[in-house]
């Protein structure tokens, strides 16, 4: 059953789209990641123009983060003060990102930048995850190992503008979460991701936040930043396809619920290896498009308006 997507201006199979949304939702529910970084490259493989894939994906992330945020909020696992500082950085970052996106689109390099960013991200995150999960399996087999040091003092604690974050039990420079939020905001605008896969480790290892409140706080900032990206992309580039976003979202929320339930019963370390391999493969597949000589060296685009 084909469905015509009004903004992407292509026909795709609606059952296939729902299936992909559900599968990625399932993975994201199982691993607690957003899944945007998986969906966008898949959409690009399906010939959705990259600029539209990214903007639409941001819209989808807004919806898929709601359920998680509400769950964490009800368990009081959100640091709103920290979230707001991250968000301030995120707003600036995503606004800069959307402007940058527009400039890159005009000079014809946006597809390349999106591609490069994904190749870099997927291969590095995939490789890190693979190493980390293999190590975890080895640790599990050996039983034991040295516990991680909880709080280390590094250069980041020497920065000015210190602020107290009661919920996170931290007294650190506001520049840190501001900068982190900015970086994730730029990524959200250019790649259409929520950025949890970078945000969560950074909050734990760089800021030193307690693990329990990290996911809820990151979701809090994700919703607002991706909403900002959706709005700005819609106004500046007209690249948000609500039909595509809705289909992916319906599949995504169903998949996430099932994934969350299944994930709780599976040996997490082993499943994590699978995800790492999947992410790596996506990254390699994308990089091959940059390296292998393309069948057609020329591309065409309408000048002024349109795609």
């Amino acid at each position: 059953m084909q469905i015509y997507l009004p903004i992407a201006e292509i026909s795709l199979n609606v059952i296939l789209l729902l299936g992909i949304g559900t599968a990625v939702g399932f993975l994201s529910g199982m691993f607690g990641v957003g899944g945007g970084f998986l969906l966008t490259p898949i959409l690009i493989f399906m010939h959705v123009p990259p600029a539209i894939a990214v903007a639409t994906q941001a819209n989808q992330v807004v919806g898929s983060s709601v359920s998680g945020l509400l769950a964490h909020w009800s368990r009081d696992n959100v640091d709103f003060k920290m979230g707001s500082v991250l968000l301030a950085g995120g707003f600036i970052g995503s606004t800069v990102g959307v402007v940058l996106f527009g400039i890159l689109k005009r000079i014809g390099q946006i597809d390349l930048v999106i591609n490069l960013a994904y190749v870099f991200l997927l291969t590095s995150v995939g490789a890190l995850m693979l190493v980390e999960s293999l190590r975890a399996i080895l640790r599990l087999r050996r039983r034991g190992g040295a516990p991680r040091k909880l709080h280390q003092h590094t250069w980041v604690h020497g920065l000015p503008l210190k602020m107290r974050f009661r919920r996170s039990r931290l007294y650190i420079s506001a520049l840190l979460p501001l900068g982190l939020g900015f970086l994730i905001g730029v990524l959200a605008a250019i790649m259409g991701v929520g950025g949890a896969f970078l945000m969560v480790p950074a909050m734990i290892y760089l800021l030193g936040m307690p693990t329990r409140i990290v996911v809820g706080t990151s979701l809090f900032q994700t919703i607002f930043v991706t909403a900002n990206v959706t709005f700005l992309q819609a106004v500046q580039n007209h690249t948000v396809d609500v039909v595509l976003a809705s289909i992916l979202l319906v599949g995504g929320v169903i998949g996430a619920q099932i994934g969350g339930r299944v994930g709780a019963r599976l040996p997490a370390e082993y499943v994590r290896v699978l995800l790492a391999v999947l992410v790596l493969m996506l990254g390699l597949r994308l990089s091959s498009e940059l390296i292998v000589t393309p069948a057609e060296l020329y591309s065409i685009a309408l000048v002024g308006g349109g795609q």
Binding site: N59, V62, L70, I223, A227, V242, S246
Partner: peptide, 11 residues
């Protein structure tokens, strides 16, 4: 509307 729709669907 795109944002509101996504929020509503998620909720």
């Amino acid at each position: 509307c795109a944002i509101a729709g996504a929020l509503l669907l998620g909720w």
